[in-house]
Design a binder for these strands. Structure first.
Lengths: 222, 222
DNA sequence: AAATATTTGTGAAATAAATAACAAAAAAAC
DNA sequence: GTTTTTTTGTTATTTATTTCACAAATATTT
């Protein structure tokens, strides 16, 4: 099984589309439908499934419930994933309130901030001092963290996360994090994402965009 | 000039690193330094520059000020880009307050929401009824929009944006937008980004991650 | 029950992207 | 002023990803 980042991201998108097909009352689905729903080719869908060992039935397509279960299994949805956030500023606070995670069995169990004003034991998701990050993560065995602190604090926070046993980080700070220990990092830079839109919609680069059904989902409709 | 999404995203990252080098007092820089700063190879840096027609001096490297100006020029930073947001929920509100856009000459000039409670003419960035989106964008000639509304409203909002003349959209709703008119779409799905981290940090996929210095910046440090 | 139509699964081919390699240029050293 | 060293710019190579194409399988129709 040789997965790449894009194929995993697509699995997530298939699952999303699948959910909508299911609510529409469908029971089975074909690679063609999924392809159309997320904007890739049907070959791509089948190849992705092949990579992850997902199989359907020839001529019969895929049973939605079954496919859904397989995707959830691959994406680690058999159990709730506990996640922590460092930084309760604009982005951190938005993620805390965001209700899209819950239905994906992702649970933000705590947030940490340097600002005492933000601390709260009683909030729906408690907010603690950054000093409590390491013991908390250690004690709870949390493996995933989100970095939503300013750039200047990001490396320090990341170091603490890695020290405390976190193995994967979603990073919103615009810099390259470094660590002596192994840790998966996925960085999202909102400014860059917007700059991309600006570049491709204002430059004469139209021709090449059609092929740009890329990672984050950039595409051009005709 | 054959740009792809990744190369444009990297330009943005080079610029960021460059800014830090400049504040450190440096005047010139080599492809090696930039590569190290953002985590790619120096070949990649030079190749990117080559694609966009950026040149330095052999053995002399690049003058930071000059390079900075060229990058800004390519990324359309010679003039302020006016942007609107649809949806003032968690993510929309966070983006409104986010101060990372301003220094990139991106200005959010208005937001639109269906909820009258959120309307305000006097806020730093005014929030209007969604009904005012089309005339506002039309009158001001806005070309870039951000979609931060729930999935169920996203297609409708997108249609209005395209109708009103918007040519590029940064979309946070988890679905594929469709339009009969040409429009650049860049979709960011926060759940998917986090799922990616979870997948690669919990599965035994370590081996392939090293090569995964991908689009959104995912990488694994040793 | 046989014939037909459709869709999967997967290697092969094509395309795209990243890295390596190195000649040419220009600082720096001598 | 010549030699040496270093770094760019670009072409060639390698690696990664997507698409094509079609045999094999199985619903559906007759």
């Amino acid at each position: 099984m040789i997965a790449n980042k894009k194929s995993v991201a697509r699995l997530s998108r298939y699952k999303n589309a699948l959910h909508r097909f299911k609510t529409m009352g469908l029971v089975r689905i074909f690679s063609d439908n999924l392809a159309d729903a997320i904007g890739v080719t049907s070959s791509q869908v089948r190849k992705d499934f092949s990579v992850f060992g997902i199989t359907g039935s020839k001529r019969g397509g895929y049973q939605i419930d079954d496919l859904f279960a397989q995707l959830n299994n691959i994406l680690g949805k058999d159990q709730i994933q506990e996640v922590i956030i460092a930084g309760v500023g604009n982005i951190g606070a938005a993620l805390l309130k965001y209700n899209g995670f819950e239905k994906e069995k992702i649970k933000i169990v705590a947030a940490f901030d340097i600002d005492a004003q933000k601390w709260s034991d009683t909030a729906p998701v408690p907010v603690y001092s950054l000093d409590r990050l390491i013991p908390f993560v250690n004690a709870r065995g949390i493996k995933i963290g989100i970095i939503a602190v300013p750039e200047s604090a990001a490396q320090m926070v990341f170091d603490r996360m890695v020290t405390s046993g976190i193995r994967g980080v979603l990073n919103f700070a615009p810099l390259r994090l470094r660590s002596p220990k192994q840790c998966v990092i996925n960085s999202v830079n909102l400014v860059t994402e917007l700059e991309n839109v600006i570049f491709f919609s204002t430059s004469g680069q139209r021709i090449f965009l059609g092929e740009l059904e890329a990672d984050a989902g950039a595409h051009q409709v005709e």
